[in-house]
Simulated assay, not measured.
Amino acid sequence: MKVAVMGAGAVGCYFGGMLARAGHHVTLVARPQHVEAIRDGGLRMETRQFDERVALQAGTDAAAARDADLVLFCVKSLDTEAAGRQLREVLRPGALVLCLQNGVDNADRLRTVLPDHEVAAAVVYVATEMAGPGHLKHHGRGELVVEPARGIETVVQALVASGVPTEVSPDVRSALWLKLVLNCAFNAVSAIAQKPYGFTVAGTGIPEVIRDVIDECLAVAKADGVTLAVDPHEAARKLVETMPTQSSSTAQDLARGKPTEIDFLNGYVVRRGEALGIATPANRVLWALVKLLERK
Rank of each mutant, 00 (worst) to 15 (best):
Gly142Ile: 01
Asp231Tyr: 04
Ser247Leu: 14
Leu136Tyr: 00
Arg173Tyr: 10
His138Leu: 05
Leu56Ile: 10
Leu56Trp: 14
Val5Glu: 06
Leu43Val: 13
Ala10Thr: 10
Cys13Asp: 10
Leu98Cys: 06
Leu254Val: 04
Ser77Lys: 02
Leu96Ala: 11
Ser169Arg: 14
Val181Ser: 03
Arg111Asn: 00
Pro244Phe: 00
Pro148Tyr: 08
Leu19Trp: 05
Ala37Leu: 05
Gly151Tyr: 12
Ala149Lys: 11
Glu129Asp: 13
Leu276Gln: 09
Val113His: 06
Ala175Phe: 07
Ala107His: 07
Gly267Ser: 02
His25Asn: 15
Asp105Arg: 13
Glu46Pro: 00
Ser249Asn: 01
Val3Asp: 06
Ala235Glu: 10
Val123Gln: 13
Gly205Ser: 11
Val213Cys: 04
Glu36Trp: 01
Arg21Ser: 11
Leu178Asp: 03
Phe186Ala: 02
Val146Met: 08
Tyr14Leu: 12
Asp79Tyr: 05
Glu294Gly: 08
Gln86Ser: 14
Ala127Ser: 13
Gly17Trp: 10
Thr280Ser: 02
Lys258Asn: 15
Pro196His: 06
Lys238Ala: 14
Ser169Trp: 14
Leu289Glu: 12
Arg271Cys: 02
Ile192Met: 08
Ser249Leu: 09
Glu81Trp: 04
Gly225Thr: 12
Ser247Pro: 00
Val213Pro: 05
Gly257Phe: 07
Met243Val: 12
Gln101Lys: 09
Thr242Pro: 06
Leu286Lys: 04
Ser162Ile: 07
Pro207Tyr: 06
Gly163Phe: 01
Gly7Val: 00
Arg21Phe: 11
Leu180Met: 10
Met1Trp: 00
Phe264Leu: 02
Gly42Ala: 07
Gly273Val: 03
Gly23Glu: 12
Ser77His: 05
Ala127His: 08
Pro232Asn: 04
Asp212Lys: 13
Ala288Glu: 15
Tyr125Phe: 11
Ala22Asn: 15
Glu46Val: 10
Leu228Ala: 03
Leu254Ala: 08
